[in-house]
């Protein structure tokens, strides 16, 4: 059984589709990185998991419970660090922790939790006087109360400095070692890469990739972009190259041929071009990194569509 199973999850706001027929399975005990640029629909999915909002269509089960029908059972076993949350300014950190400990019927020690998330010295101060980072730490602390089976962390490093983000990842590891499933959303690959067993990349409400970090990396790094400078491009040359095995894309201008191919197919490509009547004057090789790939999704300035095409091809091989 998956800790999270969504099928056909769709959320529409009027004409705008925030999430489109999403299927997602997060296995129990994994740390799942839910990646995607801002506005891709990550928070919408998380809000549906927690029943903050109701899906237009589709089913979601969380820890085996129906997310909309058995909300209380889900909340009892889930620790939540939502995005766009606020704390009660007039209550202290201790009062917040005490409130959630009582609500969960847990027996945690507020001081131990405060210590763990690094706000032990501020536990008796009003949360309204906390910095953004401290508020985030307090909220992470409240998510840990009662040893939840599932932790849902929506952009948990928001407001944290690099040191804080590092500590947060340590806590994610500790919770995972304890046996908890962690569902971790972020728009920054680096946050997720180091701790996640698996990632899903969401783009415009659709899951465009779901794999292990290593799986994604292997798939991408096996691919090479070969740029060949030739004296001329004979008519038959491109067709001949396309006909080869392990070739995903071929394009050409007057004197250059660009080929996307498996790494060990590059010599075959060069030979084929020569046989077709072109003289190879020079060539370059470029590998696609995971970072390049992810940037294609998250950086609005770079061509999102090309990134989309790229990964679709990579993953369908």
């Amino acid at each position: 059984m998956g800790a999270i199973e969504a099928s056909g999850l769709t959320k529409q706001y009027g004409d705008v589709t925030a999430v489109a027929a999403l299927d997602l399975v997060v296995d129990e005990g994994t740390v799942f990185g839910f990646l995607g640029p801002n506005g891709a629909g990550k928070s919408t999915v998380i809000n549906c998991l927690l029943d903050y909002i109701r899906p237009t269509e589709g089913q979601i089960s969380v820890l085996g419970y129906d997310a909309q029908g058995e909300t209380l059972a889900v909340r009892k076993r889930t620790g939540v660090l939502p995005q766009g949350f606020d704390v009660y300014d007039r209550l202290t950190g201790r009062q917040h922790l005490k409130f959630i400990i009582d609500s969960n019927g847990a027996d945690d020690d507020p001081e131990a939790i405060a210590e763990r998330v690094g706000i032990a010295d501020a536990i008796d101060r009003r949360a309204g006087d906390y910095s953004r980072g401290m508020t985030q730490r307090l909220m992470l602390g409240t998510a840990l109360v009662g040893q939840p089976d599932l932790l849902i962390l929506d952009e948990p490093s928001t407001g944290l400095d690099p040191e804080g983000a590092h500590e947060m990842r340590e806590i994610v590891r500790e919770e995972s070692d304890r046996g908890a499933t962690v569902f971790f959303s972020s728009h920054i690959l680096g946050q997720v890469e180091a701790v996640c067993d698996e990632v899903g990349i969401l783009q415009a409400g659709t899951l465009v990739a779901e794999d292990t970090i290593d799986g994604l990396r292997n798939a991408i790094e096996a691919e090479t972009t070969l740029t060949v400078t030739v004296d001329r491009v004979p008519n038959a040359a491109l067709a001949a190259v396309r006909a080869l095995a392990d070739i995903s894309e071929v394009s050409a201008t007057d004197t250059t041929v660009t080929v996307q191919c498996a790494d060990d197919a590059k010599m075959t490509v060069l030979r084929k071009l020569e046989t077709a009547g072109a003289t190879v004057e020079d060539f370059e090789l470029a590998k696609t990194s995971l970072e390049d790939l992810f940037l294609a999704y998250t950086d609005d300035e770079t061509g999102v569509t090309s990134g989309h095409d790229q990964i679709s091809e990579v993953l369908t091989q």
Binding site: L50, Y52, T78, G79, F85, V87, N104, A143
Partner: peptide, 9 residues
């Protein structure tokens, strides 16, 4: 803060 409140059981 309602998200905090409803994140609890």
């Amino acid at each position: 803060s309602l998200k905090f409140l409803l994140g609890m059981p």
